[in-house]
Design a binder for these strands. Structure first.
Lengths: 341, 341
DNA sequence: TAAAACTGTACAATCGATTGCGCAAAGTTT
DNA sequence: AAACTTTGCGCAATCGATTGTACAGTTTTA
């Protein structure tokens, strides 16, 4: 078996120069003569020399690795974001280290510990549903680790972030329902302490207010945004004094739940009941009727956070900035909300 | 700002002992007295000491990191696999470093270089469509890096692997179509040099043969397994002398393409044309009619590869083994293939 | 009681790359 | 020609943890 990895010392020995000269030559240090540089670089290439990342990381105190923490890797949106980040970061020779929290605070804390431990250069985070307290996140900033949020940010922590304008997305969504003629529009909301869900609720309220409708408390139903949540919200709607004629759900799976429950009760969509969701999960295009929803632009979001980090990393010391980027969401109108007037 | 990270030297200084003693104390080395151990461990805990992974990796020549290379992170199946791996590996304090190839050999090569460079302890790989040559993979084995495949393996390389029995999955799928009464069953196949796609084709041929049907060459249509591929295959089917009454597609997206093309032509599914796919993409449950398909058990696959690696890592030196695990696929019968006889 | 074995710890090298400093040789400036 | 500058490179320390070896003191064995 051949030597596993060659080092600058191997090259140095072969050329009868010192390892430090080799290192400098490889980095095109101006104090090294052109001839030495050429000789070193040529030999390095011919041996297919690859610097040991761990050694240089240790010395330089930075790992060229970015940690990512998401609730679940296998959720379409998060997978898209991660895919986008990987594309951008790989191009700049950064690695990605990925952890999932399964929406549990405990896992989030240990993921942060793990990543800090691995001395990642930055952590990109989308908080779990359980995260209501910022202590564990604050420690990152104290340690001088770059921190960025996407989608699910933690308010009150000064960090760069990329989100879509959830409020606007919800507003456009509900406005569309109103334009179709729906009036008694219920809202299946997510956990209120999560910024994005609160924003979606507010967008809903705004659109309704603009149409002169003052939303009664009972119309807003906070649920877990899964099918069961939608079902439960639909059943709750049956008990209301005002009959719902549409549902705007803060998540697509909840919308699916509403749709299935409604159909089970013999309602026709969109005629008897309009439905819209949020997230543009791939399945929504294939539902029957297809589901109106809002696209969150996951891939772009990932690319943008990654670029934000790269910029920060370049002008290193200047930690301050903390840009906050808000992307425009895209309303996708499909059949579940189109009334044939 | 407080000190960023504390080291064994800090602890050593505080207790007036040497760093090596601290290191041994933390590892419960028998030669260190109980009292010293206690003192060290207590101080370490109180300072929330975290060992510098890079330093110990450098020294020990292993990184406690596993590299994963997949065609695309944001494909449901791969995201599930990665999710499963993360769960298992995180529990054993291993990290995951992820690269995507976008189905391009060039990216696969550079991903391998990157990961080798980062001195990962193992690489878990699902090859790209372009990978027909094994040179870049073989180097891994030569360098003594553990290598595992999942789903898309490279035949002819001796490495651990986890796959589902694609042949059986296809066989069950087609057998089901035959039992429903379909006879002229076309097959939309994937690239033939990829093992899994060839296996699916063979399963198809086997099932047909068992029913006494000798598949004519024209019935097997090799396509890119995306919607357009399905559409194109459907159109091709119109030109055949024998009229197709069903399509078994090696991928769900191709099946979707067939379904949409067929519907555009006024065919009713499953009455005029039966359709089945492969992969159990989430959207298949929501198509109308819902799509019969085969589940690939991504999450389990990820967990199993991860465990396979952990076992290898424990009994370190014994590299040999190279277990090859084959999971039973699950046929999911839905409406797209159920004839009301 | 001398020799052997064990205990508890420190020293120093090591992993591989990086970098401040020093120094000699060559080149420039007054 | 004396006094700087620049050029080209090596030495040695450093990042933090690990580990082989040495060594003094204590205990056991023959």
């Amino acid at each position: 078996m051949k030597k596993q990895h060659i080092t600058i010392h191997d090259i140095a020995r072969e050329l009868n120069i010192s390892a430090s000269t080799v290192s400098r030559a490889l980095h095109n240090h101006p104090r090294i003569s052109q001839s030495t540089r050429d000789a070193v670089q040529q030999l390095a290439t011919s041996y297919n020399y690859q610097p040991n990342v761990m050694a240089s990381s240790l010395r330089k105190g930075q790992s060229r690795t970015v940690g990512v923490i998401v609730p679940r890797i296998n959720r379409n949106f998060f997978a898209n974001v991660i895919g986008g980040m990987e594309e951008v970061l790989a191009a700049s020779d950064y690695h990605l280290m990925i952890c999932q929290t399964h929406e549990q605070l405990e896992n989030e804390i240990s993921a942060i510990k793990t990543l800090v431990n691995a001395r990642v250069d930055a952590i990109i985070l989308s908080i779990s549903l359980e995260t209501t307290d910022k202590e564990h996140i604050q420690t990152l900033i104290d340690k001088g680790i770059h921190l960025f949020f996407f989608d699910r940010i933690f308010e009150g922590i000064n960090a760069g972030s990329v989100v879509i304008d959830d409020r606007l997305g919800a507003y456009m969504n509900v406005k569309h329902l109103l334009e179709q003629g729906y009036r008694n529009i219920m809202h299946v909301a997510g956990a209120d302490h999560i910024t994005i869900f609160r924003a979606r609720k507010e967008g809903y309220i705004d659109a309704m207010a603009e149409a002169g409708i003052d939303v009664p408390p009972g119309w807003i139903m906070e649920r877990s945004l899964i099918q069961e949540g939608g079902e439960s919200a639909f059943l709750k709607g049956l008990e209301l004094s005002t009959k719902p004629d549409a549902y705007f759900c803060a998540g697509d799976f909840a919308a699916l739940g509403v749709m299935q429950a409604a159909r089970k009760r013999g309602l026709t969509i969109p005629d008897d009941l309009g439905i819209s969701g949020f997230a543009n999960e791939p399945f929504t295009a294939f539902l029957n009727p297809s589901l109106t929803t809002v696209d969150q632009r996951g891939g772009e979001m990932g690319k943008i956070v990654a670029e934000m980090f790269l910029q920060c990393a370049e002008r290193s010391s200047e930690q301050a900035d903390c840009e906050k980027i808000v992307l425009k969401p895209e309303l996708i109108v499909r059949n579940s909300s189109i009334l044939n007037k």
